[in-house]
Each structure stands twice: as structure tokens, then as C-alpha cells.
Amino acid sequence: MIEAARTAPSPPRPARSADQRRHQRVPVAILGRYMLADRREFPCQTIDMSPGGVRLTCSVVGQIGERVVLYLEHIGRIEGIISRHTAGGFAVHLNATPRKRDKIASQLTWLANRETLGLPEGRSHERLVPTHPGVTLRLDSGREIAVRIIDVSMSGAAIASATMPAIGAIVSVGRTPGRIVRYFEGGFGVQFLLPISPDKFHDGMTL
């Protein structure tokens, strides 16, 4: 009976191993923005990420223990606490509900496997259709074209247009600078040079 009592605690070990696997860091580069406790905002990019934490490269480093709000393309808005400083940035321990952690895990798996499996370029789940989709597209030459925004994410937009600027051309979608990155039937995709600020990303936004 004594020996049985000593071995009784062993069953929880697989659960801990499963939890560690679920929170394994994935090397992934995702553009985004972060807001420190003093409400200053800066662009950033992830180095690696798990459902429980993320390591960022950025220009301004907050204090350890400071609350930070992140907005990452494909992931959305998440919050956390700065857990440590790293070379060129900091790491964040994420505060997320189990449902949000599961979503992050799914997105990270997809992002990590996309290139390996040859999957097509994905579209963020955080895309919106602006209330006023009509906008002026300005080319480097100074030419202006009336176009329509099909949808927009923090890092880019799908544009409906009869005119097709060259791939790689620098343009301004309204006041937001970007680059033409792809064509599709009836229009083209623009990648913004800097992500849109989280507090401006909503269906009534203007570019």
C-alpha cells in the first residue's frame, strides 16, 4: 500500500508534457505594432512565438513587468507583460483566454507550415471592409487614380481598379504609403510600408 501511494502522483506528467508541446515556440516573422503603458506606439516584428509568449524585435524597449498591448497581423490584438529584455527587443508573457490561445496555436501552425507545404499566401482573419471604400491612389509620378478598397488589414489592402500599376511600385492609398505586391482579377494587392496603428483599425477607418 505504501508503494502504491508513492507512485500515485505519476499520472499528471503526460499532461505537463502535452502543455509544453502546446506552448512550443515557433520561429515566425509577423509584422505588428505594440503599445507601452504610457500609450506610446511603435512598429515591431516577431522572432518566435507560442500561445503563451512572444519574442519581438523593436526599437524601443519597455520595462520588465510593464503591461504591453500587441497587434499582430494574422493574430490580432493580444496583451501581456514584458518578461525579459533580449538583443534588439524584448519577450512578452501573454495574457490570453484558453480560446484565444487555441486560436494562436492554430495560426502559428498554419504560418509555420505554409512555406514548407507550399500553401498559397494567406489572408488575415483580421480583414475589414471600410465603411467608405472609395479612395484616391497616388503613384510616384504624381498621377492620381480613383479606386475602391475591397478589404483592408493592418499591413495591406486589396484594391479594385481598372488601372494596374507595376508590381513593386510605391503608391499611397489615400495617405497610407505602400507597395504593389500582387495582381488578381480586377485589381491588385498593396502592402503598407508600416502597419496601421491598432486604435485606427476599424470598419470606419480612412486611409
Results as ranks from 00 to 15, higher is better:
Gln107Val: 10
Ile30Gly: 01
Ala29Thr: 11
Gly142Pro: 05
Gln63Val: 14
Ser153Thr: 07
Leu119Ser: 11
Pro43Gln: 12
Ala112Ser: 15
Asn95Ala: 13
Gly118Pro: 05
His74Arg: 03
Leu117Thr: 03
Glu144Ala: 15
Arg33Val: 08
Ser59Ala: 15
Gln45Asn: 09
Ile30Trp: 01
Cys44Gln: 04
Gly76Leu: 00
Leu137Tyr: 05
Lys100Trp: 02
Lys100His: 07
Thr109Lys: 14
Ser17Cys: 09
Val152His: 10
Gly118Ile: 02
Ile75Ala: 01
Pro130Asn: 10
Ile149Glu: 08
Thr97Tyr: 04
Ala96Leu: 13
Gly62Glu: 02
Glu41His: 06
His93Ala: 15
Arg99Asn: 11
Pro130Glu: 11
Arg101Ala: 15
Leu117Pro: 02
Arg16Ile: 13
His125Trp: 01
Met154Lys: 05
Ser83Asn: 09
Gln107Pro: 00
Gly156Met: 06
Met35Pro: 00
Gly53Trp: 10
Ser59Thr: 14
Ile104Trp: 00
Gly122Phe: 13
Glu73Gln: 03
Gly142Trp: 10
Val28Lys: 00
Leu111Thr: 00
Pro120Val: 09
Asp151Arg: 03
Pro43Gly: 11
Arg77Ile: 02
Arg40Trp: 02
Ser153Met: 04
Cys44Asn: 06
Lys100Leu: 15
Asn113Pro: 04
Asp140Phe: 11
Thr136Trp: 13
Thr131Lys: 14
Gln107Cys: 00
Gly65Glu: 04
Leu111Gln: 06
His132Lys: 14
Thr86Tyr: 04
Gly76Gln: 02
Lys100Gln: 15
Gly65Lys: 05
Ser59Met: 13
Ile30Thr: 05
Gly156Asp: 04
His125Cys: 01
Gly134Trp: 10
Glu41Leu: 10
Thr97Ile: 06
Arg67Ser: 11
Leu119Pro: 06
Leu94Thr: 07
Leu56Tyr: 00
Gln63Gly: 09
Val26Ser: 05
Met154Ser: 15
Asp140His: 12
Ala29Leu: 09
His125Glu: 14
Gln45Ile: 00
Gly52Leu: 08
Thr116Lys: 15
Asn95Asp: 14
Ala96Ile: 05
Ile149Asn: 05
Val54Glu: 06
Arg33Pro: 01
Arg67Asp: 09
Leu119Cys: 06
Leu31Pro: 05
Pro51Thr: 07
Gly88His: 12
Trp110Ile: 07
Ala87His: 09
Thr116Cys: 09
Ile64Pro: 10
Leu70Gly: 08
Thr86Ile: 13
Glu73Ile: 05
Ile149Phe: 08
Ala91Ser: 14
Gln24Pro: 01
Asn95Glu: 11
Val28Ser: 04
Ile150Gln: 10
Gly32Asp: 12
Glu115Leu: 11
Met154Ile: 14
Asp151His: 08
Val69Asp: 09
Arg114Tyr: 06
Gln20Glu: 15
Arg114Leu: 10
Val147Ile: 13
Glu66Thr: 07
Ala112Gly: 03
Tyr34Trp: 12
His93Trp: 08
Leu94Asp: 02
Tyr71His: 10
Leu139Pro: 03
Gly80Val: 04
Gly62Lys: 03
Ser17Thr: 13
Ile104Asn: 00
Ile104Pro: 01
Arg33Ile: 03
Leu36Ile: 14
Leu72Trp: 01
Pro120His: 08
Ile145Pro: 00
Ala87Thr: 12
Asp102Arg: 15
Arg101Trp: 03
Leu72Pro: 01
Arg127Leu: 14
Gly134Lys: 12
Asp19Ile: 10
Leu72Gly: 03
Arg84Asp: 13
Arg40Ala: 11
Val54Pro: 03
Ala96Met: 09
Glu66Ala: 14
Ser153Pro: 06
